[in-house]
């Protein structure tokens, strides 16, 4: 299983970025190999609008099965739902802990957006 986590850092000790669409990158963690790679999303930090949609599209293209972020807006959720990507939200935390929390069933899964579009 591949997990995408929004972040401004580049390793498992970095903080989860709580904003989804404007996150500068995503860490892609493979639960089978325990390895990770980085997905650049910096173009969307400066998107005119619709950053969430494009970001969701990037995650789909990267082949993620699960997303961990702080929030997710309605349009991004529509894209992620269309591709059956499970979305979990976390509070302020480092990526490693968020992944452990996910695997221990401590994170909340959301299926409808939790923040308004903007």
């Amino acid at each position: 299983m591949k997990i995408a986590i929004s972040t401004a850092g580049n390793n498992l000790d970095a903080q989860v970025e709580l904003r989804f669409g404007r996150a500068s990158s995503f860490l892609l963690f493979d639960t089978d190999t325990r390895n990770f790679s980085m997905l650049d999303n910096s173009e969307q930090v400066n998107a005119m609008q619709g950053a969430g949609i494009k970001t969701a599209q990037n995650i789909v293209t990267a082949g993620a099965d699960v997303l961990i972020s702080g929030h997710c807006g309605p349009k991004a959720m529509q894209v992620l739902n269309a591709k059956n990507i499970a979305v979990y939200v976390t509070e302020k935390n480092v990526i490693g802990t968020a992944i452990a929390n996910l695997q221990n069933g401590l994170l909340e899964q959301i299926t409808t957006h939790d923040v308004a579009g903007h």
Binding site: Q49, G50, I53, Q57, V60, K75, Q78, V79, A82
Partner: peptide
């Protein structure tokens, strides 16, 4: 304006608000 996207072999998806 990122108001329409196209993924894989799915038909294009429209976001009217944008």
């Amino acid at each position: 304006f990122n108001a329409i996207i196209c993924m894989d072999i799915d038909p294009a998806m429209v976001f009217p608000a944008l």
